[in-house]
Design a binder for these strands. Structure first.
Lengths: 180, 180
DNA sequence: GTTTGCGTTCGAGCGCGCTCGAAGCCATAG
DNA sequence: CTATGGCTTCGAGCGCGCTCGAACGCAAAC
C-alpha cells in the first residue's frame, strides 16, 4: 500500500519526536477509513479546522458539498479527500488563490495535468526553501540559547544586540535542554 | 570565531543548494563588518526589508534610532545588530507582539534573562514543529509529483481528490526532476 | 407547544504585518 | 533661484485568511 511507504518515509525523515508528527501522519495515512459521508463537524474534527473554515472553503469554490433533506452539508469521500489535500497545501503555505487555480485545473480535466505538475513542482521548491530558512533560524536560535545558557563571551553580540550582551558569569553552565 | 562554527553547522545542515542559503548565511555571519553607522536605505538593503518596514519596527518600539542634523535616521552598530536579530526572528515566524515583549525584557536588564531564555526555548520548539510539518508536506507533495509524473494507479487518490485521479497511462515514466 | 440545539446563509469584522500616500523639510545640481 | 530627489511624520489602507454575529429553519426532547 502506497500510504505505508509514505508513512515510512515520513517517519524516517522526522524521527520520533512529538505529538504533532503523529497527528499529522494520522492525517496523511488515514485516508483509507474515510466514511461514505460525513457531516460538517466530523470533517472539521478530522481536519482540525473549524466548520466556519470549511464553509469558507466551499464559498471560495474549492469544493462542492451536497446537502441533505434539512439543507445540512453532507461531505462524500471525494470531498473529504480533496479537503485533506487542500488542508495540507494550506498548512504548507500555498495561498488560497493558488489553490483556487489548482482546483479549477482539476475541474477542467486531464489536459491540465502538466500545469498542475508545474504548480506542484514550484510549491515543492517553495517548501524546500522555507525549510532551509527555518533550519537556519533554528541553528541561530539554538546558538543563542547555548550562549545564554552558559559559557558566554564577547561573541554573544554576534547573535544579539549589544544591550542584550548578558554574560551571566556566575551561573553554572546550563546546556540547552529543557524541551519546554 | 563563533560565527564560523555556526556557519559550518548551517552549511552541513543545509547542503549546498540554492542562492537563498548563501544569502542567509551571509546575513548570519556578516555581523563583523557592520559599519559604525548606516542610513535607512543601507540597512534596508542589508536586511532585505523596506525602509517602510524599518520605520514601522521603530514605531513599534523594537529599536531606537538616532537622527542626524537633517532629522534623518542614523543606525548605529547596536541598532543594526538588534535589527538583524529581529529580522531573523520575524523570518522564522515569531509574532511582533512576542518580539515587543522580548525587547522590553532586554531593555529591563539582566534579571530578565531567564524569561528571555524561556521565550527562545519556546520559539525553538515552534520552529522545530514547523519544520516537521513542512517536511511532512514536502514528502506528500513529492509523492504526488511522482505519481503525476509516471506510473500511477488507484493509489493516487490517496493523496488527491477522486476527480484528480489522472492516470496518464500512455505517457512515459517521467520522474520528478525539473528543479525549475 | 415550546425549548434546546445544531445546522443554514450572508455580510461584516478582525488581527496581523506591512504598505502607501500626502504634506513637508532640506541639500545638492543645474 | 528653482527643481529634483530623498528623507521625515502621520494616519489610513490593504491583502490575506479566517472568524464571527444576526437572523432564521428544522427536529428531537420535555
Amino acid at each position: 500500500m502506497a500510504t505505508d511507504d509514505l508513512m515510512t518515509r515520513a517517519l524516517e525523515t522526522l524521527g520520533d519526536d512529538g505529538p504533532l508528527s503523529v497527528e499529522a501522519i494520522h492525517r496523511l495515512t488515514d485516508l483509507a477509513d474515510v466514511p461514505e459521508s460525513m457531516m460538517i463537524n466530523e470533517v472539521a474534527d478530522l481536519l482540525d479546522i473549524s466548520p466556519h473554515t470549511l464553509r469558507y472553503y466551499e464559498r471560495a469554490g474549492l469544493v462542492e458539498v451536497a446537502r441533505d433533506s434539512n439543507g445540512h452539508r453532507v461531505y462524500d469521500a471525494e470531498a473529504v479527500r480533496r479537503l485533506v489535500f487542500l488542508t495540507r497545501m494550506r498548512l504548507s503555505g500555498m495561498p488560497m488563490r493558488d489553490l483556487q487555480h489548482y482546483i479549477s485545473l482539476v475541474d477542467a480535466g486531464e489536459q491540465t495535468v502538466p500545469e498542475r505538475l508545474d504548480m506542484l513542482l514550484e510549491h515543492r521548491d517553495t517548501i524546500r526553501r522555507r525549510i532551509r530558512e527555518l533550519t537556519l533560524s533554528l541553528a541561530a536560535t539554538e546558538y543563542k540559547i547555548a550562549t545564554y545558557g552558559g559559557s558566554t563571551g564577547p561573541d554573544v553580540q554576534d547573535l544579539d544586540t549589544a544591550t542584550d550582551r548578558t554574560t551571566l558569569p556566575h551561573e553554572p553552565l546550563r546546556p540547552a535542554l529543557r524541551t519546554r
